[in-house]
Design a protein around this nucleic acid. Structure first.
Lengths: 189, 189
DNA sequence: CCCCTTAGATAGATTTGCCTATCTTACTCT
DNA sequence: AGAGTAAGATAGGCAAATCTATCTAAGGGG
């Protein structure tokens, strides 16, 4: 260790290493020692910041969430907006969903509650993104606003999340189109 | 231990105890020793049947699946059939879904595959049940058969499963009705 | 009664991981 | 230069869990 890291740079390195461990070995096999080795640090450095293993896991997840915000597409058509966003989620969020469900299920079983400091990876920042999409669609006259319940707005993303949580893999592109064309769009028009 | 169990009775007792441990302490905290205590047995008895912890977990899940088959409702209306089935699933399957997702996510992260001997708790026996429901609805003229894609048929159950996997709790009854009345039924008519 | 199978009991080997205590030293600031 | 902070290094305590080896004896069958 020729150069010591400090402050935010060190913390980022620690959290990135923790995230790597979560994705390579999974939540169940996640160990402090592996993070120590991967980050080139020592145990007290981690324990000075996070009181235990689970706290580090959650911090790593939250860190990764913060680093991977999704852009809001604006294609001029609702179908393309929703498909573009779903494709982006599909391409980038499977691992996050897998890591999170493993942790959340275990946490829930241990405590009977959900950790308050984590929000769903497909939810974070999504409400605003989707609302923007729908506002534009309403202005373009593409949808009937009366059909835009919260549940219907979130439907494509719920179904995508469902795919992730039942297969741990991205959905096929034709599945995305099927969700949008045969379920979602008929409901909003 | 005044009376020794043998054969199927012993195996049922072992698997019931394993399931109890899964629901009380969760998958992550599941230990062979706790099952031994709960079942009033000894470690070699378990290892004579299941080669390791994970195999016992899967056997316990499969055993519980087999023991909890759902009846097919026949109310005379599609809405009531689907709602009745969803309510039954809602009342009885949350724990199963929670235990399974914890195990499946961990297994997937460790191996990159899904275990081949487990099927989804809401899938098992569901395809036939749902097809029967839909056959009757078609005969009654309640639905347009052209709208009955596989994805739409499974939609209410997918959304219910999604509820389970994101909250680890049963859905509110009004949510079930919302799913059926504002999403599912408009799509099949 | 005898033989065989295996349930239940128990001890043990081994490993692993979590977390803490302590020390040296790099680095920043005054 | 000196003081203070904390990064990096290392050793250690401890517990827990997994799984195996071995033994006794219950129970079934001939």
């Amino acid at each position: 260790m020729t150069e010591r890291r400090r402050g935010a740079a060190l913390e980022k390195a620690l959290l990135d290493a923790a995230w790597e461990e979560l994705t390579v070995h999974g939540y169940a096999k996640f160990t402090i020692d592996a993070v120590v080795k991967r980050a080139g640090t020592s145990p007290p450095v981690l324990y000075r910041r996070w009181s235990d293993r689970d706290e580090l896991v959650r911090a790593a997840i939250a860190h990764t969430l913060k680093e991977s915000r999704l852009d809001i597409p604006d294609t001029g058509s609702l179908r393309e907006d929703v498909l573009t966003l779903m494709r982006e989620i599909n391409a980038t969020r499977v691992q996050l969903a897998t890591v999170m469900i493993a942790h959340l299920a275990a946490y829930y079983q241990a405590t009977g509650t959900r950790p308050s400091d984590l929000t769903d990876p497909l939810t974070t920042g999504r409400k605003e993104a989707v609302d923007t999409l729908f506002d534009r669609a309403v202005e373009r006259g593409e949808v009937n606003p009366e059909h835009l319940t919260e549940r219907i707005k979130s439907l494509p993303f719920d179904l995508l999340r469902h795919e992730f949580l039942t297969t741990f893999a991205p959905a096929a592109d034709h599945a995305l189109e099927e969700i949008v064309d045969t379920i979602f769009l008929p409901l909003v028009r």
